[in-house]
Simulated assay, not measured.
Amino acid sequence: MAKGLTRCNVCGRTAEQVFEGQMLISIHERIGYGSEHDGSMLDLDICPDCFDKLIDGFAEECAINPIKENF
């Protein structure tokens, strides 16, 4: 988050620019042991449009699909 203004890390749109009723997907976690990014902080906000593009490509690479439809 940049100075209290939440932006999509991919396209840069602010939360206010995302369509009404939609929410940004946010992950804010310290990266644990076992990654080349050990100890780094992940500060990710992504708008629904960018999330769809990202997850569609990512899910195809997964042995177990991370998306549970209509859960």
Rank of each mutant, 00 (worst) to 15 (best):
Y33H: 00
F58L: 15
D56H: 03
A59L: 04
H37G: 06
D56P: 00
L42I: 10
I31Q: 07
F19L: 05
G39T: 04
G34A: 06
R7G: 03
H37N: 14
G57V: 04
V10K: 08
I46T: 06
E20I: 05
M1S: 14
M41T: 15
I46L: 03
R30V: 12
G39A: 02
V18N: 03
I27G: 01
N70Y: 12
S26V: 13
E60A: 13
I27N: 04
N65C: 04
E29M: 05
N9W: 01
P66H: 06
D49M: 06
S35W: 07
D49K: 08
G32P: 10
L24K: 02
F19N: 07
T6V: 15
E16W: 03
I64P: 01
F19W: 00
K53W: 00
D43V: 11
G4K: 11
K53Y: 03
A59D: 09
D49W: 00
L44D: 03
K68P: 01
K3F: 09
C11K: 12
R13M: 14
S26Y: 04
E16K: 13
K53C: 00
S40D: 13
M23P: 00
E20N: 09
S35E: 10
G57C: 01
Q22M: 06
I67W: 02
N70A: 13
E29A: 10
I31R: 10
E60N: 06
V18M: 02
G12W: 07
I27R: 05
E29L: 05
Y33I: 02
V10T: 10
C8E: 10
Q22K: 07
P48Y: 08
P48S: 14
E36M: 08
T6S: 12
D49Q: 12
H37I: 07
R13L: 14
A63T: 02
A2G: 13
T14Q: 14
K53G: 04
